[in-house]
Amino acid sequence: MADIHVEEFYKDVAIALVQLYMSFPRRVNLFVEDIAGPDEPDEFGLHSKRHMACFGALLWLSEEGLLRYVDTIRQEALDQAVLTREAFVRLSAPAPQALLRELSAVSNEPELPPSVQKDLSTYIHLLRSALKSGSSSRISLAVQSTFFNDSGLQPVH
């Protein structure tokens, strides 16, 4: 069983990448609250550990070369965030059929047009399907398969 903070990290990463993919190439503000849920700072103005973990995951994505942003909006959001070229290419790439079958992310209906079948076989579809399922193990596997395998992205320095 994975640590809960690692499962939350994978979910935060998946949600952020899907949001950025949906707006690509337009720059958007990426709000922590839209990813991790509402947060009420305490009487000292400090955010919850959950909020800060999500904010940390967003910063980590940038440090690893998966997204760029202009600035932070306090600890609330990344201002003008966009996927890097490497992240966009990887999310748009076809995922291995074995992985798609394992995660049941693609329909095997023969009547689907080839263009639809192609769209349903990408890593971004894999992430969307995993998020839709709500399964922590599917989300974790989808994120790991997309970015953390030998065939995934290498950090940009």
Score class of each variant (00 low, 15 high):
residue 59 L to P: 00
residue 87 A to M: 05
residue 29 N to W: 10
residue 74 R to A: 15
residue 45 G to P: 01
residue 55 F to H: 04
residue 60 W to A: 11
residue 27 R to I: 14
residue 74 R to H: 15
residue 75 Q to I: 14
residue 73 I to P: 00
residue 72 T to A: 12
residue 36 A to L: 07
residue 62 S to A: 15
residue 34 D to W: 04
residue 26 R to F: 15
residue 47 H to R: 03
residue 21 Y to P: 01
residue 71 D to S: 11
residue 33 E to F: 12
residue 30 L to S: 03
residue 32 V to Q: 00
residue 30 L to E: 04
residue 88 F to E: 05
residue 87 A to L: 06
residue 45 G to L: 10
residue 75 Q to E: 14
residue 76 E to W: 06
residue 64 E to W: 07
residue 51 H to N: 04
residue 76 E to D: 10
residue 50 R to Q: 12
residue 25 P to E: 11
residue 85 R to C: 13
residue 57 A to L: 04
residue 47 H to C: 08
residue 55 F to T: 08
residue 77 A to Q: 02
residue 89 V to L: 10
residue 58 L to K: 02
residue 83 L to S: 02
residue 75 Q to T: 14
residue 21 Y to Q: 07
residue 55 F to Y: 07
residue 44 F to C: 10
residue 36 A to T: 07
residue 42 D to H: 05
residue 32 V to E: 00
residue 37 G to M: 10
residue 48 S to Q: 03
residue 64 E to N: 07
residue 31 F to D: 07
residue 48 S to V: 13
residue 68 R to P: 01
residue 46 L to W: 09
residue 27 R to M: 12
residue 58 L to Q: 05
residue 47 H to E: 08
residue 30 L to T: 07
residue 39 D to E: 06
residue 75 Q to W: 06
residue 59 L to N: 08
residue 59 L to W: 07
residue 26 R to V: 15
residue 34 D to Y: 06
residue 63 E to M: 07
residue 56 G to S: 09
residue 68 R to K: 11
residue 73 I to Q: 02
residue 66 L to F: 11
residue 21 Y to D: 11
residue 36 A to P: 00
residue 53 A to L: 13
residue 45 G to F: 13
residue 40 E to M: 09
residue 70 V to C: 10
residue 27 R to N: 10
residue 28 V to Q: 03
residue 50 R to H: 11
residue 79 D to K: 02
residue 69 Y to S: 07
residue 70 V to R: 06
residue 84 T to L: 04
residue 70 V to K: 03
residue 48 S to C: 10
residue 30 L to K: 00
residue 63 E to V: 14
residue 35 I to D: 01
residue 62 S to F: 12
residue 47 H to V: 12
residue 83 L to C: 04
residue 42 D to T: 10
residue 70 V to G: 08
residue 30 L to A: 07
residue 55 F to V: 12
